[in-house]
Nucleic acid binder design. Sequence first.
DNA 1: ACCTGAACACCGTTCAAGT
DNA 2: ACCTGAACACCGTTCAAGT
Lengths: 205, 205
Amino acid sequence: MPLTEAGIYAAALRLIDEDGVEALTMRKLATALDANPMSLYYHVPNKDAVLRGVARMVGAQFRTVKSEDAPWQERIRLLATDFRTLAQRHPRFMGYSFSLQSDFIQPDDPFWIELTAILDAAGVPHSELSHFTALVGFAINGVLTAELTGTLHRWSSLKPPTDGEDGLTPPGLDENRVFHLALDTIIMGLEGQLAVFGEGQGADH
Amino acid sequence: MPLTEAGIYAAALRLIDEDGVEALTMRKLATALDANPMSLYYHVPNKDAVLRGVARMVGAQFRTVKSEDAPWQERIRLLATDFRTLAQRHPRFMGYSFSLQSDFIQPDDPFWIELTAILDAAGVPHSELSHFTALVGFAINGVLTAELTGTLHRWSSLKPPTDGEDGLTPPGLDENRVFHLALDTIIMGLEGQLAVFGEGQGADH
DNA sequence: ACCTGAACACCGTTCAAGT
DNA sequence: ACCTGAACACCGTTCAAGT
């Protein structure tokens, strides 16, 4: 099996899934590919490019059902959960790339394009469209990152037991609850904002 | 000036403010202190401890006005902006510690305690208190992190010019708008959720 | 008690050289 | 066209030794 660019990215992702991004090393990556560490540099300029390649690879897997006729609330929920299930397939990489979002998050990613379209359809004024897209996207991102990096999990274990119960919440259940609660709250907030826009319009004309 | 633990943290923070966390090195830190790299290890167990020390140092600077008589909406806004101004004093460190939040974010930090108190006062049921605290905290965190790491800024430059204007938004203004928009939206969402709790209570009794 | 030098086991990357 | 070895400039950290 000869060395290829795609093969390098795939192997890198495999290593990251196992041991996390911080453990990825050009030298380890090479030995995982049964290759000389220096051979990688013929196919790839440097380590940073490997990470970007992995990001492109994972990002390309993102699929979301196009349901343009559904109400925008439902569409946001769908988009967010689709994105979440993708993120959960590679939690260590996504947790990293979301947080150290230096160059990984681009406004022309399918997620953001779809989110913009949904908010547009919902009635967000064009002048505020990018603001609201950023707000919703990064707020969800914040909750999801906390989930992926395990911060959320370390929290819920500190939660008071549910009134005399055994005190052990089934694993993942709390994460689910917080994520959907966040979605609900943001959507409700958007509904409120849209109502404000409506009022302003009514008063002006 | 002899080497001290606090002095090491202070110097580390100074270096991070200038060049970012990823540029911090035990060896650079030592030369910045006019010391032998190995001398640090007498005062500090390892690099990770240095980062944690810096986190404690920065976190200790957090102050928020206690305004228990104000409406909870105002209290959330105040807490969030207080936290934001602290974060903006050390954007590179805060951007890092928020994202790689492995061990930096603790539920017993003053920010979270105050946020919990506010949401409690707002009427969030005790069984859901930690969920809502997490939701609000990490959503705000997500937007703030995007601001600190510059992701938000790289975005707004892609914004369509405001209809025939010069197309240049004053720097920082967009960040301000998005942050406060996020606050408003989350608060509105919380109001909605609280209304739901109210209904449920009314129907049950 | 506080500091130091030498050393170890790692990194990413370059570059001239091999096939 | 593809791979390799040697080498460079870095890391964090240990440890025995100095004052």
